[in-house]
Nucleic acid binder design. Structure first.
Length: 310
DNA sequence: CACTTGACCTGTCCGC
DNA sequence: TGCGGACAGGTCAAGT
């Protein structure tokens, strides 16, 4: 019997590859799953043939990954970190279509999990890396579009990666205050607010879904220039963003059958989205038809009545 | 420098 | 049924 490490993003069978792109809540859900499944496991072998996405030399993999035990699974922004007892870490970015799928643990999880059929087909043509553990379980890195990547590097060097040097604060960190949020957003006064939310150097982890959802929550048009938004409105936006991220993480944890069955598919945070991918449907707040436009180079969803462009 | 756009990939969907 | 083009839950390099 098998389990996905990120069950909520496996929607319908025919949606296997197109419904898995992660933002902060999705990556956090993957992290929680991997943390549960992988801690203490010992890597037996790694197979990969994907120099661009996993550029480490075979000798590094042999020396610091094969035989290593997994100490911890962490997340920063949308990046996953798997710490090994060799003082090396796997650094993984799923980008748009990356997946980490775990297969194993018959005793712990029992039979009949709804993801049996899916995981049973792995590895497949999108499998870029396969990790074999000494207990016979496996972890697959699948990535249809090959935007994602895996790196093996010394744990102490991870924080020195360019991305981690530049990335903004975690939006749900206790130490990150509404005032901090406003200050950082104001670093891009002439940009549209959606572009700023998507900028990982301002705030970490926000992507296309949660920018649209939080802007709807705060009743701000995605193309509004930051300079035209009052501090009080930015604070409302911060609250809306935190609420939607927390809600989504909570839903991501809803991997049980009931949730799956109730939706008729394998769970999706989209079932509670207010505007995302709901163009043509009524706004849950006012009933106006939801619009889809192009903003910050991305498909963008909004209520043209609630979210007036300044 | 601030800010926006194109490129990276593969697959799917939609209109002709 | 086939084909072209748009588009996709991200990020960085190159452009204005």
């Amino acid at each position: 019997m098998y389990l996905l490490a990120h069950v909520p993003y496996q929607a319908a069978d025919n949606c296997y590859n197109s419904c898995t792109m992660p933002e902060l809540p999705e990556v956090e859900t993957v992290r929680i799953g991997l943390h549960q499944f992988l801690l203490g496991k010992q890597v037996k072998a790694v197979s990969f043939d994907w120099p661009k996405g996993f550029p480490n030399a075979a000798s590094d993999v042999q020396g610091f990954l094969a035989g290593a035990r997994i100490l911890d699974v962490r997340r920063r922004a949308k990046v996953l970190l798997i710490d090994l007892d060799t003082a090396y870490s796997l650094v993984i970015h799923l980008k748009m279509t990356g997946q980490l799928v775990y297969k194993g643990d018959h005793e712990r999880f029992g039979a009949g999990h709804p993801n049996d059929s899916l995981v049973g087909t792995l590895p497949d043509k999108s499998t870029r890396v396969t990790f074999d553990f000494t207990d016979g379980s496996q972890l697959f890195f699948n990535d249809q579009r090959k935007f994602g990547w895996v790196r093996l590097m010394p744990t102490v060097e991870v924080e020195h990666l360019d991305f981690f040097q530049r990335v903004g604060p975690e939006p749900l960190a206790d130490t990150f205050t509404p005032k901090d949020f406003v200050t950082r957003i104001r670093r891009r006064p002439k940009s549209g607010i959606k572009a700023v939310l998507l900028d990982q150097t301002i705030v970490a982890g926000v992507g296309n879904i949660y920018s649209d959802e939080s802007l709807w929550g705060a009743k701000i048009h995605p193309e509004t220039k930051v300079a035209d938004i009052a501090d009080s409105q930015l604070e409302v936006l911060f609250k809306a963003l935190q609420d939607i991220l927390r809600l989504s993480i909570e839903k991501g944890g809803s991997t049980d059958r009931n949730y799956v069955n109730a939706e008729g598919k394998r769970g999706s945070y989209l079932t509670f989205a207010h505007v995302f991918r709901r163009e043509g449907k009524p706004c849950p707040r006012c009933g106006t038809t939801i619009l889809k436009i192009r903003a910050a180079g991305r498909g963008t969803h909004l209520c043209p009545n609630c979210q007036i462009k300044v």
